[in-house]
Design a protein around this nucleic acid. Sequence first.
DNA 1: TGTACATCAGTGAACGCGCGTTCACTGATGTAC
DNA 2: TGTACATCAGTGAACGCGCGTTCACTGATGTAC
Lengths: 188, 188
Amino acid sequence: MRYPAEETARKHQRLLEAASVMVRQKGLDGVSVSEVMKAAGMTHGAFYSHFANKEQMAETALATALVQTDAGVEQVLAARPDPKDSFLHYYLSPAHRDDPGSGCAMAALAAEIGRAGVGRQVMAGHLRGWLDRIAGGFKWAKGSAQRDQAILMTAAMVGAVILARAVDNPELSNEILDATRTQLLERG
Amino acid sequence: MRYPAEETARKHQRLLEAASVMVRQKGLDGVSVSEVMKAAGMTHGAFYSHFANKEQMAETALATALVQTDAGVEQVLAARPDPKDSFLHYYLSPAHRDDPGSGCAMAALAAEIGRAGVGRQVMAGHLRGWLDRIAGGFKWAKGSAQRDQAILMTAAMVGAVILARAVDNPELSNEILDATRTQLLERG
DNA sequence: TGTACATCAGTGAACGCGCGTTCACTGATGTAC
DNA sequence: TGTACATCAGTGAACGCGCGTTCACTGATGTAC
């Protein structure tokens, strides 16, 4: 049967939200059409009223996840007095490590995108914007380019969260987060 | 028919080698039983003469890939005069970025292991050994713990390679590798 | 040393299963008059 | 404003396909005598 346009729009939004979370939790290839639809409270048949196919959903979910990641960065950049400190404490926290579904899409999906080919352009655009904002928004040590420092910080944060998620030992996992935060703060 | 024990052992070795490469290229879940067997020159039926099931092959392939990664580290630690410099130049090179199959297993597989659960213990053991060796084998800046510096360096290298593989723009990809290397060398 | 036979790695057909996708159908919505 | 009808999001059965896994079979190897 036909549904009110507004309700359909709301359902589509629910779908995007569920897909962006699940994709970060299970990977772009790790979520099935059925489970995304189920999470949004529908049956699998309606999937093709919202997406052309599974690949397009993956791309859309990635884009949505990246937008949410961006929103998080914006929020932190408004923090006073020290946005960089706030950012490092959030990003390298156990909470972020343990909740990939609502966390940074680069840490969750960059590795898979690297081998799949799908989403590499979107990821490049996202990373460019990310680097511009943190290179300009944070205070950096004198003596070397802000952009290079922003790249090191980004690589270290992403790598630290990925490694912290990949080990089963809680002490080692926490140590990775703590040491990375300490080192990045120590250098200015 | 029955085959000479020595030939069987050689085939098993071929299987491990192929699996460890393919798993780094396509992910632990991204390789099928058939394609691994085909790569080793056999048909899929013989798979179960070598492994209990697909999951066990994935674990074995991960372990093999980590051993090969370790062997690479050992080799670099013997480099003169500056093993750290050699290490950073290899790890953060376009060659390493473009050849995940024979590259670092952490960069290739840590993200997937983080969400799968399989291999987290093996990964923790590997990372422990890795950190011990580079914390002890390289020269570090005074003023903060060698281990913390080793962790930052590892996180940054792994993150940089993952990000460099995830973007389609060659300039940005190279910039990530170059900036990370420059920054890590600059700090001693 | 020669003979008889159990072993077992490898082959390729066959299996059930979950997947992405298609389709006939439903019926309230929104539109044309 | 009321009526007739086309639209289309959503349902659930059905599809083909590739996957991991099983199985009967092969025949040279390695062993027992």
